[in-house]
Design a protein around this nucleic acid. Structure first.
Lengths: 214, 214
DNA sequence: CCGCACGCTAAGCGCTTGCTCAGTACTGCG
DNA sequence: CGCAGTACTGAGCAAGCGCTTAGCGTGCGG
């Protein structure tokens, strides 16, 4: 679990961001998508213009519409891929073996590290949900429901086994996810902490949250 | 500390929101400001039009510019008042008497309750910072620095007195504030929890975070 | 060597945006 | 009754928006 494959961390939205989007098919479409992630993260979806995205990708504004139907479809593609990744992280940790404490720590470390290392992507994924259209948003909300279920499963396991002391399981699940997600808001590459350090700190804090006071 | 004066909770941005803006001087200016809070919280600053704000306030678009120089000045006024309130909450708790644990619990309860009860305002205050102009943002960032200092002061007191076991004080301070602030993102009036309940839950979780494992 | 599909651009359309300004109703003062 | 000041509106401007369309160069099957 929790490999070090994404531990690098160069400048904002540069080549290391691009490496995470290998699955996006024609190279031009990928370049546009990476450009959109950077622009959306920096200025927000509504403040970003299609000319801005195309410019960052080194293309004319019209080129965008060969690969994507609308600006909103671009956001949806980013949001979909990001949420898939986030869900996979949490379900992998939940389905792993080890004690509930080990699995919870693994989930937090990996989830937080992703939010920190890919904080531009994560910012778009977590904070631009309202900009999606009706149907696209519903699809994404379902993925988030499943993320919530994965974390709740780990905590429930810990309560059942006696490892954890959690009076309010849904509330604590919400708090754990909320804590991790908000990393995308404040994390700064210029800052003093590496994604790994934040992951370790947060795993410790979360384990304290689910453990009874002495 | 922490009275129940703002425990009511009717519909979105309605009359109970308005009551919190009593200090804003001419009635028309206040109506515009309350309208702006509602619109900004619902659709975001950049997606909100001046016509939208004026319409909600029952006025023509031009009326806005009699009371505010620009749309950004409206956001700044909201952000300024909100951050003043948040800072006052945290400094009041930090300067209170009682043990560090009591003061930390008080800070979290009050801060979280404000974010939940006034989650429309809080959403604008916490998530539209980037939309402010250079100088206005710098002013607000300074207020946030002081909020951070207030919480860190409580935690440091607890460490010194032996009440708390916190290996990383700045990191834990950041996490506590982050956890509370993110309430503004997910809190829903239709949801199952009242602001008071969320405050109590979060105070418990935060106290566990600063207390040594058994 | 043709022709045509493909990826892309230059130009621009229709619309909305933040904001302005001349004008209007109303109020209080002499 | 006149007049100045205040709070507001209707109409609209310049700029910028998302998106479309006509056309251009390139590479590849026949």
């Amino acid at each position: 679990m929790s490999t070090a494959q994404d531990a690098e961390g160069t400048a904002e939205g540069g080549t290391n961001e691009a490496s995470a989007w290998g699955e996006v098919a024609p190279e031009a479409a990928r370049r546009l998508l990476v450009a959109a992630v950077g622009a959306f993260a920096e200025r927000g979806y509504h403040a970003t213009t299609t000319r801005d995205i195309a410019g960052r990708a080194g293309m004319s504004p019209a080129a965008l519409y060969i690969h994507y139907k609308t600006k909103e479809e671009l956001l949806h593609r980013i949001s979909r891929i990001g949420h898939d990744k986030a869900l996979r992280i949490l379900e992998t940790a939940a389905d792993g073996d080890g004690t509930a404490a080990e699995r919870l720590a693994d989930a937090v470390v990996t989830f937080v590290r992703w939010h920190a290392a890919h904080h531009t992507t994560a910012r778009v994924v977590q904070y631009e949900l309202d900009a999606l259209g009706e149907e696209h948003r519903a699809e994404i909300v379902e993925l988030r429901r499943r993320s919530d279920a994965a974390v709740r499963r780990i905590i429930n396991d810990g309560v059942r086994s006696g490892e954890f002391d959690v009076p309010d399981v849904p509330g604590t699940t919400l708090a754990v996810l909320s804590l991790c997600i908000d990393v995308a808001r404040w994390f700064n590459v210029e800052g003093r902490r590496t994604p790994d350090e934040v992951g370790a700190l947060y795993a410790d804090l979360v384990l304290r949250m689910v453990t009874a006071a002495p």
